[in-house]
Amino acid sequence: MCLAVPAKIVRLEAGGQGAASYMGSEVRANFSLVPQARPGDWVIIHAGFAISVVDAKEARATLRLFKEMAAAERR
């Protein structure tokens, strides 16, 4: 029900506005819902609004898990 992508904040402007980068494209977004976010942070963007800040540690852990599973399967 809720298409959203992780994107990296490139700019924060007044009034909660700003822009984030996703695969080299720039998308305008509203960051009012993630007041703690700073440029360089990754956020989840849905319908033009950042709804959460990506936890880099958790993201790395998931990646590591999948790399290990893939390696185990290929052995």
Binding site: Y22, M23, S25, I45
Partner: peptide, 12 residues
């Protein structure tokens, strides 16, 4: 292309 990949993810 990367822009098309990006837009397809963002806009569905």
């Amino acid at each position: 292309s990367r822009p098309v990949r990006a837009a397809s993810d963002l806009l569905g």
